[in-house]
Amino acid sequence: MTPLLSVQGIRKTYGFRIGCTDVGFDLYPGEVMGIVGESGSGKSTLLSCLAGHLTPDQGSVVFDTRAEGPRDTVTMSEPERRMLGRTDWAFVHQNPRDGLRMSVSAGGNVGERLMAVGARHYGQIRETATDWLGRVEITEDRIDDRPRAFSGGMQQRLQIARNLVSGPRLVFMDEPTGGLDVSVQARLLDLLRGLVREMGLSALIVTHDLAVVRLLAHRLMVMKSGRVVETGLTDQVLDDPQHPYTQLLVSSVLQV
């Protein structure tokens, strides 16, 4: 089987400081991978490089495109990368404000990706938006409200609907439950797990919260100082950590 995403030798430095280096892995369709580590471990830099928000200094990020098969997204042209970014890829930010248009209604937020790829029927756009709001448990009567009027958890669910509406195949998530209350987190995780399964999504989830990966990820990658120190199946890594840093992480001695 062709991997959906094949990453090789990613390196990104800031002056003399290493953001991340020597990262490589394959992600197969339907697979969810967690990337864990403390702040400054390079996991967010890595995610930005993979999602095309940062250009890595070295390495390739090969995505199995629908039209042309495997393509290196690092060397792809900006228009092609942007097109991927609004069709097959989705990016869920930690802060919903970064991923939503706060002055645009919930319906407009969800409809944007549809319109960006050519949807021109208002009624159908609205119908799809209503359907997606329902799937993330936002009632139909809120469709014309702006996200400002929503709670943090609702905003995050709206961001997820806005991203998934175009039927992406790969979702990047950066601390999707960060900044939410514990009870709200649990509900969001449940929802995400349902959607990922139902849609057969592949996902890369960056988080420092081991509960998130325990629930969502099939595989784990543990990062420290910009390097991958351990990889494996989620249960295996969490229940039987090999690297001392992972052991520290799992035993929760480490303040993250």
Binding site: G108, E112, Y122, I143, D144
Partner: peptide
């Protein structure tokens, strides 16, 4: 990248 332009028109109709 003109999705935003249509978002504006969408918002007009919604409102």
């Amino acid at each position: 990248d003109y999705g935003l332009m249509h978002v504006k028109l969408y918002e007009d109709i919604a409102r």
